[in-house]
Design a protein around this nucleic acid. Structure first.
Lengths: 228, 228
DNA sequence: TGTACATCAGTGAACGCGCGTTCACTGATGTAC
DNA sequence: TGTACATCAGTGAACGCGCGTTCACTGATGTAC
């Protein structure tokens, strides 16, 4: 039993090492992750990787889940601050951006164009929604504290879908508020992708400030007061 | 001269055919465009493609410019409508979305994660900015017509950069307005990418309505009155 | 109008490469009695 | 405590594939006199 757990521990370490090297490859070579190159880098036969991941897709899935979780943790920790609600949203946005700048290819893996021939399995969902849960949590708290106007109710066909989103974020949250939170996250996500994928090249250099400028617009839409 | 132009015309047609088939391949196989597969599909030797494009990168560049121009034309035509300013923006947004839905891989080519090992050359810029010029044109017209508040001026370091953007959009446009137009375009772009890249899966099905919901928020931020 | 030459499109074989995955195997580690 | 067996990590060769690009070539089209 002690011994069995040793073997298991070594196995877990090896699994981690493969993922770590694969992440480095993603960062250096871009999206074309090669199993053989990873194995070569570790110094093992490429066939040995198959003891740990049944296929390249499975390795990709592991990397995607790790990325979602790492980003999710960063967002959660930034969102937890004790400041004003709007400040917490902005801090979370900056934290997400900084995470992305530090790992552009992991960002591209989860929010960029889909990898050809790869379909994300179901079990990524829990990790994938952590950021929107963190942001939505801020909004839900603000609403519960009475710091947020309800806004105009939604018409069909959006209303029922927004209702479902609201139920995930917090019981009692008005659907329209939940949808604004979701839209706000997509705006943040788009702004960061725009920066990372080169759309601001030769146009905006003060990226952090520009992102904050955009987030302030988003927050006004959501209804969260921003102190200047 | 007549004969010379015949040869030139045949050459132009062949160039078009290669691009057309390459676009079909992009649509069917995803981002991994293969010169050989394109040549095979046309029924010519793969080496013959080199009479038309010096390399795979050059073909990619041609496809990117085509995509920008095709999208730009769609946006310009939607933006030209004689309606209210906000309506024109919304129509343009829907037109851009529909263009993207019809050609998801061309959208990914220009707004998705960068293609590994490919760097876009300078001469894509003119085509790349057509959409933002169309959207910015609406905002500039609205401002010239007095239908748009100036809003709060920007602080350093954003002000000078916004000034440059405003100069490109329309002389006399306040920098902060120009930056909101730019931000609004990025939000639109992000919303469409979110839909295309799968972020709304199992969450929002009424995508067109959701996009409009978001655009209305954007327009309120920009300061364009939206009639319900 | 006819001829000699230059230009150009297209061919097919080859180079050199890397890839994901499988398979029979060796040798070490763990398990049961 | 010692032995027989089962499990597992890792190897190295191989399969079958596709890729971008080059090169010497053929044959048709265009040009100049």
């Amino acid at each position: 039993m002690k011994a069995a757990s040793l073997r298991a521990r070594v196995r877990a370490e090896m699994t981690e090492e493969i993922k770590t090297v694969a992440k480095r490859h993603l960062a250096e070579e871009g999206a074309n992750l090669s199993l053989r190159a990873v194995a070569r880098d570790i110094g093992m036969a490429s066939s040995a990787v198959y003891r740990y991941f049944a296929s390249r897709d499975e390795l990709l899935t592991a990397l995607i889940i790790d990325a979602y979780d790492s980003l999710g943790a960063a967002a959660e920790s930034a969102a937890a601050g004790g400041d004003a609600f709007a400040r917490r949203w902005i801090d979370t946005g900056h934290a997400v951006r900084e995470w992305a700048l530090a790992r552009p290819h992991e960002w591209a893996l989860i929010y960029g164009s889909p990898v050809p021939g790869y379909a994300a399995p179901r079990d990524t969902v829990t990790s994938a929604i952590r950021v929107i849960l963190a942001l939505g949590g801020i909004v839900a708290e603000a609403h519960a504290a009475g710091a947020l106007p309800d806004g105009e109710p939604l018409a069909e066909p959006l209303a029922p879908e927004a209702r479902s989103v609201a139920d995930v974020l917090a019981p009692g949250l008005p659907p329209q508020v939940a949808f604004r939170a979701l839209g706000g996250w997509l705006q943040l996500c788009g702004a960061i992708s725009a920066e990372l994928f080169g759309q601001l090249q030769n146009t905006v250099e003060a990226r952090r400030e520009f992102l904050e400028f955009q987030m302030r617009g988003t927050l006004a839409w959501i209804g969260l007061e921003v102190t200047p």
